[in-house]
Design a protein around this nucleic acid. Structure first.
Lengths: 223, 223
DNA sequence: CGGGTGTTTGAAAGGCATCAAAAAGCGTGG
DNA sequence: CCACGCTTTTTGATGCCTTTCAAACACCCG
């Protein structure tokens, strides 16, 4: 996947700058070299629904058809490589192997979307937030030493719009998790996950991903 | 798409019967000849999250990788045709055109999932329910005469589990919509959408699908 | 016609949103 | 390097919407 983008020029975007907008012709796909993006749609009444975040090394713009279905905006300063869809199509016609690689990326997005559906449809505020933290930790490929420290460059408002909550509720939940000793807050954008197993439990554990730190197997059945 | 399944034997399932289960090896894809299915996952604590419904003519099991990611269960008596993924792969290797057809189906599922995310994350109970009704109407390819009558074979509990609400809330919202004259209830499984434009308005109108009955264009901007 | 399941309605409780204000970060300029 | 002012975050008080618990009702099938 990396190899697709080698030699492509690296564009730069300042924090808050848009990379593309919902409805634009989807001419390119992107790979993030460095930084963090938020992907969102604005509803007619002005509400903002954040569909996801993308970090260094991740791909962007694959699961669209003719137009981008959300706006992509830099959370931090971002550097990314661009590849035209025409070029991509040409390459995938040549290299058979590429087809299944791309399809896998698309399936990954479906998995994430379905996960998101369950989080929004079934979980309460505390559970949603815990799930967000745990999956952020998993995503950064966090070193498996506990406690795990994660960097969250986005604002609380971003998190709220992603989780379908208000900013106040997100703050309150984080404060409560801190009071309960599950996490520690270090400034605005760094959170230490002190008791990962408790967080995973809160999150519902409906994940099909492999556990972050499989140190012991809980004995669920007597004998 | 239809042609893929011609000649395949048609399996029958009684109402309530399972077609496949979450975690099963995803050996086949299906096309529904007749009937309605619900697709769901059960969370560790027993909650049921309905990911969607499938009706006559629709396809099933495409957007999975090695195992099915949800359980499929007959809501009504169902007849469906089955096609092994091995066979499908072989066919798509031969017929180049098939590739993009299948990819389109996958993209359709992503679109639906993202829609669902917005509904669950941003809309209130009344808005969610209105959206469900409107999109059900659109799906049945309803005749564009108003009022539109839709058949909803699933139970209220199914609808609740799909919309992330309780059965009581779904009932109350339907009753309110009825009181307000937006819909009429004919028995348990038939609903008449009396004032479609009002319902669409309630639903948020964030849909990118074409309008159901474009009879007039609302003048949004003065002059 | 009667039983059972599914649906509807009511009353009370709980959780999240809203409104408001204080506190904490953070960049800027003195 | 510190002080200032702005933005972001946090905390508090109140209200609304949805859930929960409970009971009546309707529909469907035998």
């Amino acid at each position: 996947m990396e190899q697709l983008f080698v030699g492509q020029p690296a564009d730069k975007f300042a924090a808050g700058e848009g990379v593309f907008w919902e409805g634009d012709t989807a001419s390119d796909i992107f790979q993030i070299v460095e930084g963090c993006l938020r992907l969102y749609r604005i509803l007619p009444d002005g509400r903002r629904a954040i569909m996801g975040f993308r970090f260094s090394g991740e791909t962007l713009g694959l699961s669209c058809e003719d137009t981008y279905c959300y706006t992509a905006e830099a959370v931090t300063p971002v550097r990314l490589r661009r590849l035209s869809r025409a070029r991509l199509r040409a390459m995938s016609d040549e290299v058979r192997q590429l087809q299944s690689l791309l399809l896998e990326k698309v399936f990954e997005e479906i998995r994430d979307a379905r996960q998101h559906i369950i989080v929004l449809g079934q979980l309460g505020a505390e559970e949603r937030t815990a799930h967000f933290l745990v999956s952020a930790a998993r995503r950064t490929g966090a070193d498996r030493r506990r406690p795990v420290t994660i960097e969250l460059p986005m604002t609380r408002q971003d998190i709220a719009d992603y989780l379908g909550l208000t900013i106040e509720t997100v703050c309150r939940v984080l404060s409560k998790l801190k009071r309960d000793g599950l996490i520690a807050l270090e400034g605005r954008h760094r959170i230490v996950l002190l008791r990962m197993t408790d967080l995973q439990h809160l999150a519902g554990e409906f994940d099909d991903a492999e556990p972050l730190a499989p140190t012991w197997t809980p004995a669920k059945w007597p004998h």
